[in-house]
Design a protein around this nucleic acid. Structure first.
Length: 135
DNA sequence: GCCAACGTTGGC
DNA sequence: GCCAACGTTGGC
C-alpha cells in the first residue's frame, strides 16, 4: 500500500464539499508527473487532502476507490484521473508551516516541489503527519 | 497582488 | 534537440 498527497484549492473544491459528496473523481490534473503518480495508485492506497493557497494545510485522509481512468474534462486524452473517497478528517489540520518546521519532514515532495499537485508520501512521513493531525 | 519556480510550447 | 517565451501554480 502506498501513500500520497493531493492538493486542491478550497475555493474550487474544499474538504467539506468532498465529505458531502462522499466520493469524487480527481479531474483537472494537467501535469505529467502528477499524472504518473496517479497512474501508480492502487485501490486502497491512502492520500492526504491538502488545501493549497487559501489554507495551506492538510485537512484529512482519503482512500483511492477507483484506479487511473480517463478524465472526461481532458479533450486531448493525455490525462486521466482516479476516484477518491473521504476517510477521516484531521482533528487538528497540519499547516505547511508546521510541516516545514519538522526536521523529519524536510525531504517531503510537498516541500521540494511545491507546484506538484499529486505527490508521494513516505510511510515514515505519513505516520508523523497522522500523529500531528490526531488521527 | 506579486513573484519565484518550473513545466510546456514552438521556432529554429 | 535546444532554448526563449510564455503560462500556471502556489507561497508569501
Amino acid at each position: 500500500m502506498k501513500y500520497w498527497l493531493m492538493k486542491s484549492e478550497p475555493e474550487s473544491y474544499a474538504w467539506s464539499e468532498f465529505v458531502s459528496d462522499k466520493k469524487t473523481g480527481w479531474t483537472g490534473v494537467r501535469n505529467f508527473q502528477a499524472r504518473n503518480n496517479m497512474r501508480a495508485m492502487k485501490k486502497g492506497d491512502l492520500a492526504f487532502f491538502y488545501h493549497s493557497n487559501d489554507g495551506r494545510e492538510i485537512v484529512g485522509v482519503m482512500e483511492v476507490v477507483k484506479e487511473y481512468h480517463p478524465d472526461p474534462t481532458d479533450k486531448t486524452g493525455k490525462f486521466g484521473m482516479v476516484a477518491v473517497a473521504p476517510l477521516k478528517a484531521f482533528k487538528t489540520p497540519v499547516t505547511l508551516a508546521a510541516i516545514k518546521a519538522h526536521p523529519r519532514l524536510r525531504d517531503m515532495a510537498l516541500l521540494r516541489q511545491s507546484r506538484l499537485s499529486v505527490a508521494p508520501v513516505t510511510p515514515a512521513a505519513w505516520e508523523i503527519l497522522c500523529g500531528m493531525g490526531g488521527v
